[in-house]
Structure formats: C-alpha cells, structure tokens
Design a protein around this nucleic acid. Structure first.
Lengths: 245, 245
DNA sequence: TTTTCTTAGTGTCGTTATGACACTAACATA
DNA sequence: TATGTTAGTGTCATAACGACACTAAGAAAA
C-alpha cells in the first residue's frame, strides 16, 4: 500500500523533460502500382532540416491525437493520399545519434500498400510537393533526406521477400480483379515472370479469393473477377514462389 | 546558400524540450535453452513504475554512449548476461499513450538468442533480481510489467515462425554441436518433433555447417561435431519444415 | 456467317524437397 | 562376445510446383 502511494508520488514528480530523450517519429513507404511499375510516394520537404529534399512521408507523433504508433501512420497516410483503410505493416525502426542533425532520433518505418484507383493525392492543404516515383529510381537516383534511402530499401526488401510466400500483393489491387491482373502485380513486385498455371493453382488452392460473379470483358474471352474473402488474412504458402529455372 | 545558413540557424535554435516527445526505450526477449525448455530472461524491477514487477530487461537509450538502437540492446544484454556477441534481431516497436503510466512511450523490442553455456547472470552490480523462466510460463502465469506480455509474445512468435524456414536455432547452441543436439533445439522451439532423416538432409543440404573434425563421445556411437560456417548468414529454406502429418 | 486474333483458363507430366520408416554403423558396458 | 543405445543412411511415397501444350470464349475483321 505504501508502495502504491509512492508510485503515485513518483508519477506526480515525473517530468520527461528532466531526461535526455530522442526525437521519435514515424515514416512510411507507401507503395502502389502505376504504369505497370511499383512506385513509392515521396514528398518534398517544406521545412528544415533537409529543406527541399525529397523524403518519405512521415512526421512526429501527435501525443494528443494519436493513441498508438499505427494511428500516427494512418493519419499521415490519410493526409497524403486520402486513403483510410490501407494495408499497413510496421517494418523496422531506425535509431541513431547521427541520422538527424537535430540529435539522437528514432523513426518507426511503416509499409503501406494501396490501389492506385483509390488515391487522391495531397487531399490536405499542405503545400508540400508530392510525387509518385518508381521504386528503383527513388532508391538509386534520388538523394533522399536523412537515412530515408535505407528506410525505403528496408521496406522494399520486406515487400519483395513477403511476396515470395504470402498473398500480400492483393492489397495493391482494387476490390475486384482478375487472376491475370493479380499475376501481373506479383510479377511487377517480384521483378520476374511467374508461370501462369502454377500461379493460378497456388492462389486458388490457398482459398483466399472468391468469385464476385462479375466478369471483365475486353476484346477477347471474359475474365472472372475475384475479391479477397472476408476473413482474408494474408495467406502464407508452404513453399516460396520460384521464378523461371 | 542562404538556405544552408538558415538550416544552421534553425538547428542552433532547435530545442527538443520545446516539443512533446514520447519516452523511447529498448526492451528485449533473451532466449536460451535450459533443461530442454525454451526459457526467457526476466528481471524484477527495482524502480518505479511497476516496482517489484517482473519485466523484460531493457531501458532507456543512453544518448551519450549509444550510437544506435542496436548498441542500446547490446549494452543491456551484456549487463544482464555477460554475453557480448549474441544473435540479435529487432522485432517490433510498441508505442501508445497508455502503455506506460509516465505518458506516451515507444519501445523497440529486440530478440536475442544465446547459448546457456555462455551466460553469467547479472555480471553487473545492479541489484535487480534476474531469473530464467520457461516461455510459456512467463507468458501465461506471470503478470509482466507494462505491455511486456504482449512484447514477449511478439518476440516468441517471431522466433517460432522463423524456425519454420530458417536455420536460426543454431544460435541457441554453443560453438560446436551435434546434429542431434541441433534437432532437439529445433524441436523445443517448434514444440513438436521432426523426422530425423528429413531434418539432417535439410540442414546438410543447406551447406551452412561444417564438421569440426571432433566427435562427441558418450556411451554409444560417437557423434560428429559441427559448427556454423564462417560466412554463415541465417539460411532460408525454400519450404517450411513440417511437423508430423 | 465464318475466320482469325487474343486473352482466359486447363491437362498432364516431370522435378524437387520433404515425410515415413526400416535399415546399418559404431561405440560402451557387462 | 553379446547387448543396448545412439548416430547415421537407403529408399520409396507424396505434395506442390515448373513447364508447356492444349482448349475455351469472346470481339472484330472478312
């Protein structure tokens, strides 16, 4: 009982500003497929430090409005893209003395996958410039702010490795899609082709999709449209998908 | 040029204490095999908050001494166990308004694997009580401080899932070990038995081990001793290991 | 109406890593 | 020398995949 009281006293006296704490933020790699390429959203910084540098969208936690880290990530995503129910996954945290000139800092990196159809860029009034950039170009030809190139590579690496054994790319497509569209999405993310029959067996046997009853007609045989099943967690396959041998 | 100067001016004026920032710490689940069980290291907190509660070892980043988050984790591990070259992997970060009574806080969780032979508990002068506890017991019967039960489950989950498709459990063994010992380690982490021949084929075909030339003699046929190859990254298998069908 | 083109979707066989399980090998101890 | 115990192997069945040729169904041209 005495101890309970003394914890209360401890908390009353506690002031975070008495201690050295790092800056802590959230950054995110928002991926989509545009023009048959995997692209990532970049923003041009409108503030110091790294003013005018391209960077991953992100920012500080709003201690008043955000209950959790994921809230911060969702808020940033909504501000930039207008998308509010994305696939969102925490990837890795980066913390060091040198990554930000303001001092010791930690950033929690998130990965988001969205369908390009759902995007309305820069819905908020922020004046930052926003752009979709093909991932390879962003990694190799952009000199991103802070350690954002490393963060982007980490998120991209997580994505490409999970494609090997999960059904994660379904999150890059709109609600209804054909198996061929899904296959193309896998191929774009993987960076190589996959065999049609193997792919379809794999996906259909996994029992993660259901037919919508609709078909997509074009100038050829209509293709059945599918959607992710309601309970659809990202499915894990027992084996990795292989490229051509 | 004017901008470069103004960034300098910006940094001169910048004071982290002008902003609300969360507390940021590192916590870790240190696993080892003892008594044929997967066990995790717990410490009894000697300070508020959650005084006298069992918790995962961890603490705040030392902004002066730690260059990176991994430094903080390594330092904590060394303080508690005397082990300084462990397998160390960042798992997940937990941040929310409510997880710590002191206010908004973020903790970066790490997973460490060490061989029980290498441990010298509580090498430092800290007066905290330290104990190895079987993982299931720690998860189910201990009321850990803060959200440490959730953190432990996350680290444990990462471990058990990676066992399915990597050679990660080699890090729970001493430098030299027999294939049977390695198999037992896999079985303990997996929680079920694996078939001897399949296991040996898998491990040997992966080409991650080399014979030391030594054998372990007992009251029967001697067993060849192996060690992890020098370049040994944790190997990824193309298929998951299956339990009995 | 028929042909042709294009994309959707299937049948089937070989390959590969694994599970199952019986088998042999090598030592200590009695 | 026999016996028990653990190390390690031979071999076949199986599951999931790659390869690739095949059929199906529509639009548009002829």
């Amino acid at each position: 009982m005495a101890r309970k009281l003394s914890e209360k006293a401890f908390l009353t006296d506690y002031n975070i500003h008495d201690f050295d704490v790092p800056l802590t933020s959230v950054d995110m790699a928002i991926f989509t497929i545009r023009d048959s390429q995997l692209q990532v959203l970049l923003v041009k910084r409108a503030q110091h430090p790294a003013l005018d540098c391209w960077a991953l969208p992100g920012g500080f936690i709003d201690l008043k409005r955000d209950r959790t880290l994921a809230d911060t990530a969702r808020r940033k995503l909504l501000e930039k893209t207008g998308v509010d129910t994305p696939y969102l996954e925490q990837v890795e945290s980066f913390g060091s003395r040198d990554r930000d000139p303001r001092g010791w800092s930690v950033t929690v990196a998130y990965l988001a996958l969205i369908a390009s159809e759902e995007i309305r860029l820069s819905r908020d009034g922020s004046s930052e410039e926003v752009a979709w950039v093909p991932v390879e170009k962003a990694e190799q030809q952009f000199d991103l702010a802070f350690d954002h190139t490393e963060i982007l590579k980490s998120c991209h690496g997580r994505l490409t490795s999970k494609v090997q054994y999960t059904s994660l790319p379904v999150n890059l497509l709109p609600r209804e899609f054909t198996l061929t569209e899904l296959q193309q999405t896998f191929e774009i993310v993987l960076g190589n082709s996959v065999e049609k029959k193997s792919f379809r067996r794999r996906i259909l046997d996994a029992d993660i999709l259901e037919e919508t009853g609709n078909v997509k007609t074009g100038s050829n045989r209509p293709a059945k449209l599918y959607r992710v099943k309601a309970d659809g967690q990202s499915h894990f396959f027992a084996r990795n998908i292989e490229g051509p041998r």
